[in-house]
C-alpha cells in the first residue's frame, strides 16, 4: 500500500504551505508589534516597545480591557450554564419537537454577526437597553452558548448511560444524581467550555461594535483603529488579545486532555 514517495512529499509540502498561510498573519502581527516603523513593511526597522507603551498609556485601552474582562467572564458563566442545561436535556430526554429545540439552541452561529448586531441594537435601543455592558453580555451569551453546549454534549456522550440509573437505583433523587454523578463527570468539559466561551466573547467584534455604545471592548477599539489610519498599535493590542485568548484555549485543552489521560491510565 505504498504510494510513490514523491507524491507524499508533494502532499506534505502542501500541508506545510496551508499552515504557513494560516499562521503568517498571526506571527506577522507579533513581529510588527515590536517593530519601529510607522508603516510596516520589509526590511524591518529596529526593535521597540513603543507601541506597547503607547497603548498602556491610553486610558481608553485600559477601560476596554476592563470591560472586555467583565463581559467575557460574565458571558462565560452564563453561556456555560445554559450550554450545560441544553446538553443535558439533549442527552437525557427525547420529546416531540426536539429537532426544533436543538435548532433553536444551535442556530445562532449561522446568522451573520452584522445581522445579529443590527437586530440586537434595533431591539435594545427601542427599550433603552443599548450601550450598556449588559447589552454586550446578553448578545454574546446567545452566540456562545451553542459552543458550550457542543463541548459539554461531547463529554456526556462518553458517560456510561447506566451511571445515572444506577444512582437512582441506589436511592438518589434526580437532583442528587445530578450533583453526585453528572456534574462531577462533566466538570472538565464545563471548565473547558468556560474558557472557550470566554475566549470567543473576548474576540467578538461585530455585535459588540453595534451594541456597545461608549462601553467599547478591546476588539471594538481595534476595529476603530483599523477604520482610521495604519497604526502598529493594532499589532500590540492584537498580540495581547491573542495571548489572552490562547491562554484560555490552551487551558481548556489541557483540562480536557489531562482528564482523558487520567482515564486512560487509571481506567480498565
Amino acid at each position: 500500500m505504498s504510494t510513490k514517495p514523491s507524491k507524499n512529499i508533494l502532499l506534505r509540502g502542501y500541508v506545510v504551505l496551508v499552515f504557513i498561510f494560516v499562521f503568517t498573519p498571526i506571527l506577522t502581527s507579533f513581529v510588527f508589534s515590536v517593530n519601529s516603523d510607522r508603516f510596516p513593511t520589509i526590511p524591518l526597522g529596529h526593535f521597540t516597545t513603543h507601541w506597547y507603551e503607547t497603548i498602556f498609556a491610553d486610558p481608553d485601552v485600559w477601560d476596554a480591557f476592563r470591560i472586555s474582562g467583565i463581559v467575557s467572564i460574565t458571558v462565560a458563566i452564563l453561556a456555560t450554564f445554559i450550554g450545560f442545561c441544553t446538553a443535558y436535556t439533549d442527552y437525557r430526554y427525547n420529546f416531540t419537537g426536539k429537532a426544533l429545540y436543538l435548532s433553536l439552541a444551535l442556530l445562532p452561529p449561522t446568522i451573520p454577526l452584522v445581522i445579529m448586531g443590527l437586530a440586537m441594537l434595533a431591539l435594545l435601543a427601542r427599550i433603552n437597553m443599548s450601550g450598556e455592558i449588559y447589552s454586550i453580555v446578553v448578545s454574546h451569551v446567545v452566540l456562545c452558548s451553542p459552543f458550550a453546549m457542543a463541548v459539554i454534549r461531547m463529554r456526556l456522550a462518553q458517560i456510561d448511560p447506566n451511571l445515572e440509573s444506577a444512582a437512582w437505583n441506589l436511592g438518589a433523587s434526580n437532583w442528587r444524581a445530578m450533583r453526585e454523578v453528572i456534574v462531577p463527570f462533566c466538570l472538565p468539559a464545563i471548565a473547558s467550555a468556560f474558557c472557550l466561551t470566554a475566549a470567543v466573547s473576548f474576540d467578538e467584534f461585530a455585535v459588540a461594535w453595534f451594541v456597545s455604545g461608549l462601553n467599547k471592548t478591546v476588539p471594538v477599539i481595534i476595529l476603530e483603529i483599523l477604520q482610521g489610519n495604519t497604526d502598529p498599535q493594532i499589532n500590540a493590542i492584537g498580540s495581547i488579545v491573542f495571548i489572552t485568548s490562547m491562554t484560555l484555549v490552551v487551558l481548556a485543552q489541557l483540562i480536557l486532555m489531562r482528564k482523558t489521560i487520567n482515564q486512560t491510565t487509571t481506567g480498565i
Binding site: V15, F19, V22, F23, T24, P25, I26, T28, S29, F32, P40, T41, L196, A199, V200, D203, F205, P219, I222, L223, L226, T230, I234, N235, I237, G238, V241, F242, S245, M246, L248, V249, Q253
Partner: peptide
C-alpha cells in the same frame, strides 16, 4: 495539526485581516 488548526479560530480576525494588509 488539529490543535493548530483550531488556534486561529481564537485569534482576532481583525488583526489577521490587518496583517494581510501589510502583505
Amino acid at each position: 495539526a488539529l490543535f493548530f488548526l483550531i488556534v486561529p479560530f481564537f485569534t482576532s480576525y481583525l488583526v489577521r485581516a490587518y496583517s494581510w494588509q501589510i502583505f
